[in-house]
Simulated scan of single mutants.
Amino acid sequence: MEMEKLMIKLCMTKDIGVHGNLFGGHMLAWLDEAAATWACSVCKNPNMVTAKIDEMVFERPVKNGEQVIIYGKVKKVGKSSLTVYVEARKKDFYSGEEQTVCSTIFIFVRIDNNGRSIAIDDTVREKYAYLNS
C-alpha cells in the first residue's frame, strides 16, 4: 500500500531549537498529531490513543522556512491496536524534491470511555487483513 499524505507543516522561528534546527520535540508532536488523527480516521473512531512510539532517528535537519510533509501507511491491525509507519520529509519549494527527515512506527489502541482497550471494528480489520497474513 502506498503512503498517504497526512499533514503539511511549515518550520517557523518559534519551532527552532538552540542549534538552529527544528526542535525534535516539535517534530515528534507533529508526527504524533498527524498519526493519531489519521488512526482515528482509519478506525472510524475518535477514541484512539498513542500506546507506543518506536525508535526515532533524525536523518537530517529542518531549517526555518522549510516545509515538512508527513506521510503514513498502515502496517498492521490487531484486535484493539493499529500499527502505522510514519515518515516526515522536507520539501524543496523550488525543485519539489523531498528528503526523508525522520521516520518511526506508532502503535495506537482503541479505548472506551473508561480508558480500557476495546476491539477495532471488524470492517477495519477486514480491510487491512492482507497485512496480517
Score class of each variant (00 low, 15 high):
residue 111 I to H: 12
residue 58 F to V: 03
residue 87 E to S: 12
residue 131 L to E: 14
residue 42 V to F: 06
residue 102 C to H: 11
residue 124 V to R: 06
residue 10 L to N: 14
residue 22 L to D: 05
residue 59 E to V: 08
residue 98 E to G: 09
residue 5 K to F: 00
residue 100 T to I: 09
residue 127 K to C: 06
residue 133 S to F: 11
residue 67 Q to K: 14
residue 97 E to W: 08
residue 67 Q to Y: 10
residue 130 Y to D: 14
residue 92 D to C: 13
residue 86 V to Q: 08
residue 56 M to L: 06
residue 107 I to S: 02
residue 29 A to I: 05
residue 63 K to N: 15
residue 111 I to P: 12
residue 107 I to R: 04
residue 56 M to W: 02
residue 129 A to Y: 12
residue 34 A to R: 06
residue 23 F to R: 01
residue 49 V to F: 02
residue 67 Q to I: 14
residue 66 E to M: 05
residue 69 I to G: 04
residue 25 G to F: 03
residue 5 K to G: 01
residue 13 T to A: 14
residue 57 V to G: 13
residue 108 F to E: 05
residue 17 G to Y: 02
residue 21 N to H: 14
residue 119 A to S: 07
residue 126 E to R: 00
residue 98 E to Q: 13
residue 50 T to H: 08
residue 67 Q to G: 11
residue 14 K to D: 14
residue 80 S to I: 03
residue 130 Y to I: 11
residue 87 E to H: 05
residue 69 I to Q: 08
residue 60 R to C: 15
residue 73 K to M: 12
residue 133 S to K: 15
residue 36 A to G: 15
residue 49 V to R: 03
residue 122 D to M: 00
residue 56 M to R: 03
residue 112 D to R: 00
residue 57 V to Q: 15
residue 58 F to H: 04
residue 3 M to S: 12
residue 35 A to I: 01
residue 126 E to D: 04
residue 128 Y to T: 09
residue 29 A to C: 03
residue 11 C to R: 05
residue 42 V to T: 12
residue 64 N to Y: 07
residue 54 D to Y: 01
residue 117 S to E: 06
residue 83 T to H: 04
residue 58 F to R: 01
residue 29 A to N: 07
residue 117 S to Q: 05
residue 59 E to S: 09
residue 118 I to Y: 07
residue 108 F to C: 01
residue 80 S to F: 00
residue 67 Q to E: 15
residue 118 I to P: 11
residue 127 K to H: 05
residue 82 L to W: 10
residue 22 L to C: 03
residue 18 V to Y: 01
residue 36 A to S: 14
residue 48 M to G: 05
residue 81 S to G: 10
residue 93 F to Y: 07
residue 31 L to E: 06
residue 104 T to E: 09
residue 23 F to V: 01
residue 110 R to I: 00
residue 65 G to V: 09
residue 22 L to K: 04
residue 7 M to A: 08
residue 95 S to C: 02
residue 64 N to G: 07
residue 119 A to Q: 07
residue 100 T to S: 06
residue 110 R to L: 06
residue 29 A to H: 05
residue 57 V to M: 12
residue 7 M to W: 05
residue 39 A to P: 01
residue 54 D to G: 02
residue 62 V to A: 08
residue 59 E to K: 15
residue 35 A to L: 03
residue 50 T to N: 09
residue 49 V to Q: 03
residue 41 S to W: 11
residue 99 Q to W: 09
residue 48 M to W: 02
residue 73 K to A: 11
residue 55 E to M: 00
residue 71 Y to T: 10
residue 90 K to H: 13
residue 48 M to C: 08
residue 107 I to G: 06
residue 68 V to D: 06
residue 7 M to C: 04
residue 84 V to R: 12
residue 88 A to H: 04
residue 76 K to T: 09
residue 52 K to A: 08
residue 130 Y to F: 15
residue 118 I to D: 14
residue 53 I to V: 04
residue 100 T to H: 03
residue 56 M to S: 05
residue 43 C to L: 02
residue 38 W to D: 13
residue 89 R to V: 11
residue 71 Y to P: 05
residue 26 H to P: 02
residue 62 V to P: 03
residue 60 R to T: 15
residue 112 D to E: 00
residue 109 V to A: 08
residue 4 E to V: 10
residue 26 H to I: 12
residue 126 E to T: 03
residue 81 S to T: 15
residue 2 E to P: 11
residue 129 A to F: 13
